[in-house]
Amino acid sequence: EGYSPTLKWQQQQVAHFSTVRQSLNKHRNHWRSQNLDSNVAMPKSEDEEGWKKFCLGERLYSEIEMLPDNEDLGIDYIKVGFPPLLSIVSRMDQATVTSVLEYLISWFGEKPFTPELGRWLYALLACLEKPLLPEAHSLIRQLARRCSEVRVLEENKNEENISALNLIICLVSRYFDQYDLADEPS
């Protein structure tokens, strides 16, 4: 109560997400052919630890406190994780998208939700082709359930987290046709 989104908001997100996926398909070939920066080393599909570090950063992965970076040196993506840039996600085939989704959902099963995780989950969902393979179907249902569990436990009403969790639940349930997991209209 008080956390779930309106039906109108959910419908807007589904429409927006559909447009985003169309644009992604339109621009995929362009971004796939762009050179990656020299510091971007994408792990192999089966390298679970490598992908967790790649997406979330060594700082979060290792749960160690590090001193703030010197701003003059710019962002160290090895430490903070690489964001889901088009030049990166456009290179991922469906098997890799599904594998990385699995790794990050597994991570989320034990760790708190973070904006970095939210961005990657959204990007991977945008890359996930329909009709879903049975494995992907099960994975995204697991993801929506975990989002619901975490949302219930949000005590400080961190608006950004609630919003992000609502977004993921909405896309899984209403874009990927898992309507039994959808938030009821409020």
Partner: peptide
């Protein structure tokens, strides 16, 4: 909308996510 533009930059998915998350506050 930016998603329809030919200038869909490298951070387009991140921007789309941030926009969607921010929209909940305004709903």
């Amino acid at each position: 909308q930016s998603e329809d533009s030919d200038v869909w930059d490298d951070k387009a998915l991140i921007k789309a996510y941030d926009k969607a998350v921010a929209s909940f506050k305004d709903a």
